[in-house]
Design a protein around this nucleic acid. Structure first.
Lengths: 192, 192
DNA sequence: CGCGGGTTTGATGATGCTCAAGCCCGGTGG
DNA sequence: CCACCGGGCTTGAGCATCATCAAACCCGCG
């Protein structure tokens, strides 16, 4: 049940077996079914979710009712509205399961406890934050300067799992292009 | 010399006068002239710079030699290659002064000292990080779904200082459009 | 069997890029 | 003090990419 979490942590820092046991107990396991929401925009984000299994998306809905996929999360990824979680403000994102999923939830009090009892986890979260910012910066540049095809190919290289498992609509929204354009691109790419 | 810094901190957390004095001493004042570089891509980012006065930009250069402005920083803002600063890896961004500037530099050892002696500064930096992530997410959405004119108008509203002080080339690069397009947009916008 | 969501395919049009020329203005040297 | 240079900004014409709108298609499911 915690394999992915432990792998993710040991990837970045070294913990003793006892520390690992302690860390585990701060997370609450939760299963959630396809199409269920983990968070609704407007609520406060109570939990950061680590994905053990499954696929989720976070997205916003703009004034015209258009959805914009902010992020996908599959096995080994974190998802949540960080800003709402840390500040206690209303969330601006929705989070929905695209597949049946097994999650490990971390509440804010648990997180604080955990950082207190296993201080090395500070480093773990700092690295996650840092990687997230780097990824966001890359995405900004890509969305501004790459063609639709380049964006798609980069996603295929970096996250083949997402391309295979998410619907084209969601992928298109994530890439900032229309589903029709994505369909045509896939056709072209396949012919090579 | 530290007015902007103190304002930025007191905006987010409450410090006693003694704590403020302590904090000040961790920062190294530095003046830098227009066109000077604070950081070259490939070097390690030794300092996070707080801007007391002036205007800077961070940018990448892609394979074709094209520049992409990642960020501007004017009075009261932070600039640096966070990832390089925190991890010690090579920086991917360049940082250049667009105006003569007065900076307050924070090295990594100083930062660690400071967080140790004035723990409330943890919160300050966490809020900065958090705001940064929110801003990046907004920028991603904007760059994917807004027209060039909308992007420009948003920048004008959010950061009039940048629109007034940076060159059109830099603003265009930041917005992900060509200088020609920006020129035409400004003309249209002016006619209202 | 028929419905419905997601995907494909086609035709058309708008937005913004490219390339190219001209202009404005500040700085430099004669 | 003026002429000239050069960088940045403007303006124009043509074009590529991608969005829009619309129709057909595919396939799982009631």
């Amino acid at each position: 049940m915690h394999e992915q979490l432990i792998k993710s942590i040991q990837d970045k820092i070294t913990l003793s077996p006892e520390e690992i046991e302690k860390v585990k107990h701060f997370y609450i396991p939760k299963k959630i079914r396809k199409r269920q929401y983990l968070l609704n925009a407007g609520d406060v984000c109570q939990y950061i979710a680590f994905v053990e299994k499954g696929l989720l998306r976070s997205f916003t809905v703009d004034n015209d009712g258009g959805e914009h996929v902010i992020q996908f999360a599959l096995e080994g990824w974190l998802i949540g509205d960080m800003s709402s979680f840390l500040s206690g403000d209303e969330a601006t994102y929705n989070i929905e399961a695209l597949e049946d999923a097994e999650l490990l939830l971390l509440s804010k009090p648990s997180m604080e406890d955990m950082l207190h009892t296993v201080p090395k986890m500070e480093t773990y979260f700092r690295i996650l934050m840092q990687n997230h910012i780097v990824a966001l910066n890359r995405r900004v540049i890509s969305s501004m300067s790459d063609t639709a095809e380049q964006k798609y190919l980069k996603l295929m290289n970096n996250c083949p799992g997402i391309v295979n498992r998410a619907s084209q609509q969601n992928i298109a929204s994530f890439l900032g292009i229309t589903p029709e354009t994505l369909s045509r691109i896939r056709k072209q790419v396949a012919q090579k």
